[in-house]
């Protein structure tokens, strides 16, 4: 799949933002006043910024409101509804915390649940696609949810929880790669089933339908980006999980040093998750590539 910057930025940032909103809604930390303002500004900035970035890949963004109508069948529609509901409920909760010094816990819990639901529905947009075997596995939503909670824990300064989430998310990442590398072969789809000619011999794409490129090849076939997979995986796992974990468990004293290290951990984690998301798209092979003799 084409690793479009808009979807990479969207899934990385909104995952982070909704992860932080989940923690804030559950009262970890139960902040009020100016401190709360900074926390919520960060969370809403990431979540809304990510959502806005996602509209850049639309052909007709002015009609985006229509995407709220088909929740009965469409995960993309469900995601839009969950995202708006989460932002509205958490907006009310934030208003209470920032301006009125009170926590409306019912709203917080509902908002936290909706925030997680948003991340889950985002992941299901990809997971539902049988055409992309690497995404069509239960580990995909597990990966999106653990990444979001890890980012949220780091941003929320949940010192006790964050190292555990980092370790779990890193393990999920490794499992996702291991399983994903076998997904296409395991799906049973090949050029033989694509053309229906597989039982008469080995099928080879002889001539493409046209000499130039087209929408399908630009969108779904991205062989160039897979060249540096192992290096990028090493970068993603090191920056995203290993180094932040070290930052958090280093025995340092003092308020400033701890905060600086925590800030560094967040930045490293974001860079690592972005690298992982780039691979998530660039490595995803769509079955339509088979018709062109490509992957």
């Amino acid at each position: 799949m084409h690793p479009a910057p808009s979807v990479i930025i969207f899934t990385t940032l909104s995952g982070l933002g909704f992860g932080l909103l989940t923690f804030l809604g559950l009262g970890k930390p139960a902040v009020t006043g100016w401190v709360a303002f900074v926390f919520y500004a960060l969370a809403f900035g990431f979540a809304v910024g990510g959502l806005l970035a996602s509209t850049f890949h639309l052909g007709r963004p002015e009609r985006a409101w229509r995407a709220f109508t088909q929740w009965k069948t469409s995960w993309l529609s469900r995601e839009g509804i969950c995202a708006v509901a989460a932002l509205l409920i958490m907006g009310l909760f934030a208003f209470g915390a920032v301006f009125l010094d009170t926590h409306w816990w019912i709203l917080g819990w509902i908002g936290a649940a909706l925030s997680l639901a948003t991340v889950f529905t985002t992941s299901m947009i990809y997971t539902q696609l049988k055409t992309i075997p690497r995404w069509n596995m239960p580990l995909t939503p597990v990966m999106f949810l653990t990444f979001s909670l890890t980012g949220g824990a780091l941003l929320a300064g949940a010192e006790a929880l964050a190292p555990w989430f980092l370790a779990i998310a890193g393990a999920v990442q490794l499992a996702y790669w291991a399983k994903g590398d076998q997904a296409f072969a395991a799906s049973g789809t090949d050029i033989g089933t694509a053309t229906g000619l597989g039982d008469r011999g080995s099928v080879r794409a002889f001539e493409p339908p046209h000499t130039g490129s087209n929408y399908l090849l630009r969108e779904f076939v991205h062989e160039v980006g897979r060249k540096h997979v192992m290096k990028l995986r090493a970068i993603a796992i090191t920056l995203g999980f290993a180094l932040p974990l070290i930052c958090l468990i280093l025995p340092v004293e003092g308020f400033m040093a701890k905060h600086l290290l925590a800030g560094l951990a967040v930045l490293l984690h974001i860079a690592g998750v972005a690298a992982s998301r780039w691979l998530f798209f660039a490595q995803a092979e769509h079955v339509v590539g088979l018709y062109y003799g490509k992957r």
Binding site: I191, T195, L197, R200, G201, S202, V203, R204, A205, F206, E207, P208, P209, H210, Y291, Y292
Partner: peptide, 9 residues
């Protein structure tokens, strides 16, 4: 679109 394939039995 019209593709062309070679089948080698």
């Amino acid at each position: 679109r019209v593709h062309s394939y070679e089948v080698q039995p």
